[in-house]
Simulated scan of single mutants.
Amino acid sequence: MRAKRFTLVDVFSTEAFRGNPVAVVHDAGGMPEQDMQALARWTNLSETCFLLPSDDPRADYRLRIFSTLREMPFAGHPTLGAAHAWLAAGGVPKGQQLVQSCAVGLVDVRAEHAQLAFRAPPLLRAGPVEEALLAGILGAFGLQRHEVQRAQWVDNGAGWLALMLDDRQRLLGLAPDLSTLHGVPIGLFAPWPGGDAAFEVRAFIGGDAVPEDPATGSLNAGLARWLLEEGMAAAPFAMAQGTAIGRAGRIHVRGGGADLWIGGACVTRVDGQLAL
């Protein structure tokens, strides 16, 4: 039986067990892809990720990220959780900031304000959502068309489609039927006047074992880019996520354009060995 270091990191919250957990397998070189996917199904977390030797001389390591259903080309909270685990295990970046290699390319990660933050990758797909597709999504969420202020693709590798509502309480009360979404990741958000964050966010992945994600770096990165480019927000600001399911995620947005950073707290909750 082989053993590898295994870390569970709570990402995007300083409150114990109220962020988004990610599993990190260290030194995963040589581990078969089918075993990675099997482990991701077994942990039943939104993502499980695997640290491997770098495949690019500019990067400090390579990261592979798996949901319970498939490999993800990019995801935000696994990026931060893996960086935290790598550093805690004694990793030393080659340069002033850490560089991760993953399927979408190189992703910079830096420490700031006692947090870790990743440089948001560019959007792979943007623009308005087709009305026919939007109609099916509205039905799944029990929303009327007039309740959605705007609908936009904010896909930076995870496939996100976003809906903007104007009523936070309506957002928090949604109980969607995810069976009709066919695996399309849907993010919804609304302003939070007077709150400790500028916006409240919810994230759903139809057909996955984790139907609502507690705190989502990739979605918030896409939302932040959209909000900043359209002049609907000004950095720095924070996004709240997980409220409806008893979590307390806080995702922090700084900078903009090519220098847009998405950050939050990372805390190790479990550090041990995985038997293979």
Rank of each mutant, 00 (worst) to 15 (best):
R125A: 12
G157I: 10
E112S: 13
Q144P: 00
Q149S: 13
L123T: 04
E112L: 07
M164E: 14
A111I: 07
A132M: 05
P121G: 11
P121K: 03
M164A: 12
Q115K: 13
D155P: 02
D155V: 04
G127M: 12
L116Y: 14
E130C: 14
F118C: 13
A151G: 03
L161F: 06
L138F: 06
A120H: 06
C102T: 11
P122F: 03
C102Q: 11
V107E: 02
A132P: 02
G142K: 13
E147Y: 06
P122M: 08
R110M: 12
A126N: 04
E131N: 09
G127N: 11
F141C: 05
L161G: 07
H113R: 14
Q152Y: 00
P121V: 05
A103P: 01
Q149W: 11
A151E: 03
R145Y: 08
W160D: 01
D166R: 14
V154L: 06
S101F: 06
G139P: 06
A158K: 09
A135L: 07
L163S: 01
V107N: 05
A158F: 15
V154C: 10
Q100H: 15
A114I: 00
A140I: 09
R125H: 11
L133N: 09
P128H: 09
S101K: 13
Q100A: 12
V104F: 03
Q100G: 08
F118G: 07
A151H: 01
H146A: 13
E131Y: 00
A117S: 08
A117L: 13
P121Q: 05
A120T: 04
V109N: 04
L138G: 07
F141W: 10
R150C: 06
G142P: 11
D155W: 00
R125P: 07
L161V: 15
A111P: 02
N156G: 14
L143F: 08
A162F: 01
Q100P: 08
G159N: 09
L165E: 03
E147H: 09
R119N: 09
A117N: 07
L163E: 02
Q152A: 08
G105E: 00
R110I: 08
P122C: 02
D155G: 06
A140C: 15
D108F: 09
V154E: 04
G142E: 11
G136V: 05
L163Y: 01
A126L: 03
V154T: 14
A151Y: 04
D155Y: 04
F141K: 05
Q115H: 15
Q115D: 15
W160T: 00
A140M: 10
V99M: 15
L124C: 01
C102Y: 10
C102W: 10
M164L: 11
A140Y: 07
A111T: 11
V99C: 14
E130P: 08
N156T: 10
F141N: 01
A162P: 00
F141R: 01
I137C: 03
L106I: 12
V148D: 04
A117D: 01
A103V: 09
S101H: 13
V104Q: 02
A114K: 12
L138D: 02
R125N: 05
E130F: 08
L165F: 11
H146K: 11
A162Q: 02
L124H: 11
A151R: 00
F141V: 06
R150A: 14
E112C: 04
L134F: 10
A135H: 05
N156W: 02
Q152L: 07
A103D: 15
S101M: 05
G105Y: 08
